[in-house]
Design a protein around this nucleic acid. Structure first.
Length: 326
DNA sequence: ATGGTTTTTACTGCGTC
DNA sequence: GACGCGGTAAAAACCAT
């Protein structure tokens, strides 16, 4: 019997006798105390002398390389668990699989009946496997959505919409090649805008685990594939938050809104960042109502440069003056 | 990739407190 | 002198093509 055949056979079922034979054949594995025969005790991971019971080698477990990647953030961290994972498979190759060969554990061919049964098992195994992984995927994504939503102070309705969007993305197989966090962030961003509760991209990147580039790329992709209708954010929607963060009163808010409407009618808003417009309107409104806020304060809460505020608010006041004249 | 537009960065000067 | 504001030029970011 050749070497390779022995290995194949013992792979299936290794008997005590075979193990002992292998050991005795190797002259270098003798007990250092009594020169008795050594056997490996797989169960305890030890090498033991059959005569005196001396444990020659303890903990003979394969420590090997360490692999694990639960999420992208932890991709580089290691742990002593399992086989190498692969991102090529949606479950990272960790789930059970049923072999395709119609043979039993001893290599005997299966009967026709057994074969049919195995085929059914494979089918169902496949179904559960993909379903389970989607469930897990969804669970993680929803957790992520929840986390970001509360960090951004988004209402429940937005989270729900976001989770619906995410579910659709998952169902339409938009996930492969994209990170869960990325799609989750994109879903929430889209949902927030759809429900008229927008947050700027910058605000999102502050709380999301993905960077701006990936976020916008994924967002565009999701919107396109899902044919979501997301209208450009209305600058007015940012006003209340800026006003309250700056601790200004309702008068400012109303003034800012009217300024923005005037600007919209005058057609000077298109192409301009809604956030910048809103920030400028708030600043201008504060000026008009004699409340002191500096450009830098507004820029701070709106995450907009002072220059932009200056440029916008000049335009806002211009159209405001024109309107008053007419 | 490219070009046009918008926003940001960095710097400067002016007036006020 | 620090601060708020206004302006400008050049760089960077963004977007449609």
């Amino acid at each position: 019997m050749s070497e390779s055949e022995t290995r194949i056979r013992s792979y299936g079922r290794r008997t005590e006798k075979e193990t002992a034979d292998e050991q005795s054949a190797d002259e270098t594995t003798r007990c250092p105390e009594c020169s008795g025969q050594l056997v490996t005790d797989d169960e305890h991971g030890e090498t033991v002398c059959v005569d005196c019971g001396l444990v020659v080698e303890e903990d003979a477990v394969d420590r090997g390389p360490e692999w694990r990647a639960f999420d992208s953030a932890e991709r580089n961290s290691k742990s002593r668990v399992g086989a190498p994972t692969t991102k090529m498979m949606h479950d990272k190759g960790l789930s059970t699989n049923i072999g395709w060969q119609n043979r039993d554990a001893y290599g005997k061919a299966l009967s026709a009946n057994q074969r049919r049964q195995m085929q059914r098992l494979r089918t169902w195994n496949e179904r559960f496997r993909t379903r389970d992984s989607k469930e897990r995927n969804l669970k993680q994504a929803l957790g992520e959505i929840d986390r970001m939503a509360s960090a951004l102070g988004l209402p429940k309705a937005v989270r729900e919409t976001a989770s619906v969007i995410y579910r659709r993305a998952l169902d339409e197989d938009l996930l492969p090649g994209r990170s869960i966090e990325g799609v989750a962030t994109a879903s929430l961003y889209a949902a927030a805008r759809q429900l008229g509760n927008p947050r700027s991209l910058d605000e999102f990147t502050a709380v999301s685990r993905v960077d701006k580039m990936e976020m916008t790329r994924t967002y565009r992709y999701v919107v396109r594939e899902l044919k979501l209708e997301v209208k450009p954010a209305d600058p007015e929607q940012y006003v209340p938050r800026f006003v309250s963060r700056l601790e200004l009163n309702d008068e400012v808010e109303r003034q800012a809104r009217s300024l923005l409407r005037g600007a919209k009618d005058a057609g000077i808003t298109s192409g301009k960042s809604p956030v910048g417009l809103a920030a400028a309107a708030v600043y201008a409104a504060a000026l008009l109502t004699n409340q002191k806020v500096t450009q830098s304060q507004v820029g701070e809460v709106a995450d907009i440069s002072e220059v932009t505020i200056r440029n916008r608010y000049k335009e806002l006041l211009e159209v405001d003056h024109d309107e008053r004249r007419n």
